[in-house]
Nucleic acid binder design. Structure first.
Lengths: 344, 344
DNA sequence: TATAAATATGTTAGCGCTAACACATATAGG
DNA sequence: CCTATATGTGTTAGCGCTAACATATTTATA
């Protein structure tokens, strides 16, 4: 049978259910939402009728009428980095415990695309919005300021978020990593990154790192960066380049674990001893680092947890959720925790 | 200023715009949707008015009134596997070229959860639905059969999908991998998997694999499986176990690349020569394999492409999209392509 | 027993938008 | 010049649902 030819029989409505159950539409609505007073008998009557005709509530109509949707918009810069699928996983985990429904957009690290996405998602009148990062276009801020929905800015941290924020200070992550490497005695540094100029948080880490080592009189010998998503392959390739071109570098700092893991693969494949010949440090603390032959020194980012908190925040009723009191937190700064591995 | 205290000024409506532009609501609607006849002058008038008061269309109302939404529901088994973030990425890539808006749910490889998700997503009257796999609960099928929206089943392949399907035959993938290993002379096999009994596609690959080697008179020496998401760590751990407990195994087949990569790390850390002492083969062909010291023999799955095709399918108008003719394809079976690496 | 409060239903009036139709006016074709 | 078609705008009537109010009826409470 060709389902394209079947004319779409209109989906049953509350009215259809109400006719069968011999009650008013409103009563059916009450039963199906579990709101208001309805007698036991009517409840089962209605539920049977609804089941019988396969009633499916129309949330479009419900949201329009009640002026509240259970949609939550999520904007992430990319999906090609596990970091953000883990964040999404955390968000989903929090939301799936409520009746909230996540929908999303990918900004490709572009503030302009973010703006378009905010505009588009806002048209669905969501109950909340989750944005990545603290940097937004002027117009994005304007759009956001005109609404009163809950907003979570994630992955980065500021004391003055638009509404709520969950993350850590990336400059500080760079600083702490630099301090650690300086303590270990490294003096000639290289940096290997990706998403040049567009990954603002990686940029902050680099800046914190660079300032710290320079202030200590150490040297930033070279810096390799490329456009496009970070990956083990890119990390391996750029590491080969930077090592081949600079024989004085004694430590490399990476924009993230993927890149550093690629570097480690290069050292393994080329019998370069780590950390004796070169030290490696990065950022994120991804789970898979545990499986590598050498543990890479890194800084943990609580990705799943951040997603959970953000999801929790946007799915909480407006009233009860003060930064004071027993409500869910509005600002959480995660401390910088260096995981010292075998590579430094 | 406490934004919680600001009473939410109701968002401007078409009516508000129409008053300022001195035209009817319908004309404003026409301008903003670019549908129907409107004079140049009125168009700019209306656009100015809309911009002035910061009008944002209410898609809930629009979708309800026109009985069509641009929402596309996506159900994936997990986000903790790059495979599915790449699929999601492909879906997003296709949809972002249209005006379709993806929203999603995670089934945790459970058909019951999938059923609940289908029910929930259907309540938003989406234009299409993307499901992972061919297996669904009876009720899921019933729900789906009652609707006439576009449905893509992805990752697996069947000649008789509900509506459309994009993927490859997993049994065949297992068979081909087995054939390759048999050709290479391996005879004593081990299998290392995850998501025991719940990852139906991994199960199909294993079945195809096992039947083929047994039929050839070779031996399945041991099988290690664990619950929970696959990962390099799990792969490394289970590989250590299976090797330590079976000194006769000469080749290992893995449920996927993550697991196999973990195995490779184990062999590197323990100076086990691959493929001389033990061969490794797996499934997916993830990009990051290219960065490993040894290329793992695997079977490519076109994850991004599948996502794109599925997104394309559900975002296409119903009429033009036959399996015949020039429309978008409804069934695409990807051939099994073994990438022979250094590990077999 | 009177009366407030809780329980149980129904009625009315939209939410913000668009389809469908009606009615103009302009332009084209013969 | 007159009709046929294209262009431009407005009116009416919902989409399927819920908030708010109205009205019973029952159950507590003093």
């Amino acid at each position: 049978m060709n389902r394209d030819l079947l004319k779409p029989a209109p989906a049953p409505t509350l009215k259809d259910v109400s006719k069968i159950a011999n009650v008013s539409v409103m009563t059916v609505s009450r039963v199906l939402r579990g709101k208001g007073y309805v007698s036991k008998e009517v409840i089962s009557l209605v539920k049977e009728a609804a089941a019988k005709i396969g009633y499916s509530p129309n949330k479009l109509a419900g949201a329009l009428a009640s002026d509240k949707s259970n949609l939550v918009g999520v904007i992430l810069p990319t999906l090609s980095n596990v970091v953000f699928s883990e964040v999404l996983s955390g968000i989903n985990s929090a939301l799936s415990k409520t009746d909230m429904q996540p929908f999303f957009g990918i900004s490709d690290y572009s503030l302009i695309k973010e703006e378009k996405l905010v505009e588009g998602l806002l048209a669905w009148r969501p109950a909340g919005l989750i944005l990545t990062g603290l940097e937004h276009s002027e117009r994005t801020r304007e759009l956001l300021s005109k609404t009163s929905i809950r907003i979570s800015e994630i992955m980065d941290y500021s004391d003055t978020p638009i509404d709520a924020c969950f993350g850590l200070r990336h400059t500080l992550a760079g600083i702490e990593t630099a301090k650690h490497l300086l303590e270990r005695g490294y003096r000639k540094f290289g940096y290997v990154g990706s998403f040049l100029k567009t990954d603002l948080r990686a940029e902050k880490r680099f800046n914190g790192f660079a300032e710290t080592i320079l202030a200590a009189g150490a040297q930033l010998v070279d810096k390799k960066s490329d456009f496009g998503p970070s990956s083990m392959q890119m990390g391996r390739r750029l590491t080969k380049e930077i090592i081949d071109q600079n024989n004085t570098i004694d430590a490399l700092y990476f924009s993230n674990d993927d890149m550093a893991a690629g570097a480690l693969m290069h050292t393994i494949a080329n019998n370069i001893s780590v950390p004796q010949q070169i030290a490696l440090a990065s950022f994120n603390g991804l789970e898979f680092l545990d499986a590598l032959p050498l543990k890479i020194t890194t800084v943990k980012s609580p990705r799943f947890k951040i997603g959970e908190l953000a999801g929790l925040h946007v799915s909480t009723e407006n009233k009860s959720a003060d930064s004071l009191g027993t409500g869910t937190p509005k600002k959480v700064e995660f401390p910088i925790e260096i995981t010292i591995g075998d590579t430094t």
